[in-house]
Design a protein around this nucleic acid. Structure first.
Lengths: 253, 253
DNA sequence: CGGAGCGTTGAGTACTATCAAAACAAGTGG
DNA sequence: CCACTTGTTTTGATAGTACTCAACGCTCCG
C-alpha cells in the first residue's frame, strides 16, 4: 500500500521502480485524465509527462504564489491544498487522492493560488502546462477533456460551498466521509474501511469547524453505530444511516 | 441605466438596437474575455457569438440539468446562479454582472450544474461551446484565455469557501459589498454608490446567513456609519472601515 | 522514557438561527 | 385611485449549535 520509495529527497531521475510506468499501463487507468484517447494520443501525452517526484509527508509540491508551470496528477499518497488568508490563517481547499489532478487554480494568474502539501509519502505526475496547451491545440479531444477536468473542479467547489453554507457539523463530516468512500471505490479500494490521511485539524479547517467539533461528531456517529472510529482508521458500519445524516433529513412536510 | 428593451419574449433576431454591437466595439472592452487578441481574431470570435437575447426579471437563462451548449457573457443587467440541493433547498453560488461569464460549470457533464436567473432585465452574449472549442484549437491565445477564465472561476469559488468557512456575518457582508464595489469600478461605475440587484434572501443564501442576520448586519453597519443603506440602494461611507470589517481585524499578538 | 503534537472530553459562552410580528413595498383587480 | 394580496425587510425575544477555554489521555518519535 505504501510506496516502495523513501529517503530520496533528491530523487534519481530514472530508476526501475514502478513509478516509471507510462500512461498506457498506469493502473489508475482513466481516472486522472478521463481519456478515451487513441493509443497514439496517449503516447504523445506520455511524452510530456514528467514522473518520479516522490515526496515525503509534509513536503510541499508547490507553494502559493510560486510560478505556475504545471498541473499535477497524484500517483500515490495524498495531498491537501490550502491557501493562506490575509490575516495569516490557513484555509484547506481540498484533499487530493491518486488519480486526481491538482494545480489548475494557478492558470488564471500564472502563479499558484494555493499551496499543496503531502499528507503522507506521495508521488505525482507533473504535466507541464505549456506542453499540455500545445498538445491540446493539436488534439481537440485532449482540450475537451481538460476543459471538463477544470469544470469538474468548479462544480466540486460549488458543492463544498453548499455544504459550508447550509449544513450542520454532522452533515459536513458525513458528506466528507462519503466523498472519501466513493473516491476509494473508484480506485477499487474498500468503500467502507479506510485510513484518513489528514489530521482532525485539517478536516475541521476544510469543513469550517473546530477540531473539538470534529472530534465530538466522530464520537457521536460512533455512539450511533454509524461509524467505527479508531484514530485515523474509519469503518462505515451503516452506509444508509451515514447517507441519511449527510442528506439532511428535514422532512417538515 | 435600464435597458431600452421590453416585452420581447420572442426576441427579433436582428434589430437596430445597441445589443447589436460586435466584440470590437463593445464598451465592456476586455472585461468579458480578457482578449489581447488581434483584430482578425476578434472578428472570428464575433462570428460565433449570438446576441440579442433580452431577458426579463425572473427569466431563466438556463436551468440545472439543461443540456450544456453555450457559455454566456452578461451584457447588461445581472444574474444569480444557483443549484438546488438534494432536499430541495436553493443554494446561490454566484452573482454575475456585465462582462462576466457564466455557465462554465456545465462543461464537465455536458449539462448545466446550476440554474441562471435574471435579477433584472438583462441581456447576454451566447457563445456556443463547440464553436469556441473549435476556434480555440485554431487560436492558442483564445484557448489560453478560456483556460484562465475557468481558472479564475475556481479561485473565486475558493475565496467564497474561505469566506463561508472562517468569517463572521459582518465579515461576509462586508466582503460582498467590497466585491460588488470593485466589480462596479471595473466597469467605470461608481465604487461607492450602487443598487443591489438581488434580494436580502439571495444575499443571505449566498453567504450562508439568514435574511434576518443580513438585515441586522446592514443595520449595524449603518449605525457605525460605514454604509448608508436604503432598501437596495447602498452607499459606502467609509471604505477603509469597510475593509477593516472584511479583513478580519483580530490582532491577537 | 519523555516531550510534543494530536485527539478527546467537559463547562461555559457567543453568534447566529428560529420563531414571531409588524412595517413596508410592489403588484393586481375592482 | 384604493383596497387587497403577496412578498420583502426590519426588529425583537428566545433557543441552539458550534466556538472558546481548559484539562487530560493518547501517539509517535527522538
Amino acid at each position: 500500500m505504501t510506496i516502495p520509495l523513501r529517503d530520496t529527497t533528491t530523487a534519481p531521475r530514472r530508476c526501475t521502480h514502478d513509478y516509471q510506468v507510462s500512461c498506457s499501463n498506469c493502473r489508475l487507468g482513466t481516472i486522472c485524465l478521463p481519456l478515451a484517447l487513441e493509443a497514439d494520443a496517449i503516447d504523445q501525452l506520455d511524452e510530456i509527462i514528467q514522473r518520479g517526484r516522490p515526496l515525503q509527508k509534509g513536503d510541499h509540491l508547490y507553494r502559493e504564489s510560486d510560478d505556475f508551470k504545471s498541473v499535477f496528477a497524484v500517483r500515490s499518497g495524498s495531498f491537501k491544498a490550502y491557501r493562506t488568508t490575509d490575516d495569516g490563517r490557513e484555509q484547506v481547499t481540498g484533499f487530493y487522492f491518486p488519480g486526481e489532478v491538482m494545480g489548475m487554480d494557478g492558470i488564471a494568474k500564472n502563479s499558484h493560488a494555493c499551496s499543496a502539501k503531502a499528507l503522507e509519502t506521495a508521488a505525482v505526475c507533473e504535466i507541464p502546462f505549456n506542453s499540455l496547451s500545445d498538445l491540446s491545440v493539436k488534439m481537440p479531444t485532449l482540450q475537451r477533456h481538460f476543459f471538463q477536468l477544470m469544470s469538474r473542479e468548479i462544480t466540486e467547489d460549488q458543492q463544498l460551498i453548499t455544504l459550508l453554507s447550509k449544513n450542520t457539523a454532522e452533515e459536513r463530516i458525513a458528506a466528507l466521509m462519503l466523498s472519501i468512500s466513493s473516491r476509494n471505490a473508484r480506485r477499487k479500494l474498500s468503500a467502507t474501511n479506510f485510513r484518513l490521511p489528514m489530521s482532525r485539524i485539517d478536516i475541521g479547517n476544510y469543513l469550517g469547524l473546530t477540531v473539538e467539533t470534529v472530534s465530538r461528531v466522530f464520537s457521536r456517529l460512533q455512539k450511533l453505530e454509524v461509524l467505527q472510529v479508531s484514530n485515523k482508521e474509519i469503518e462505515i458500519l451503516d452506509l444508509k444511516a451515514l447517507q441519511d445524516v449527510a442528506n439532511v433529513i428535514i422532512e417538515t412536510e
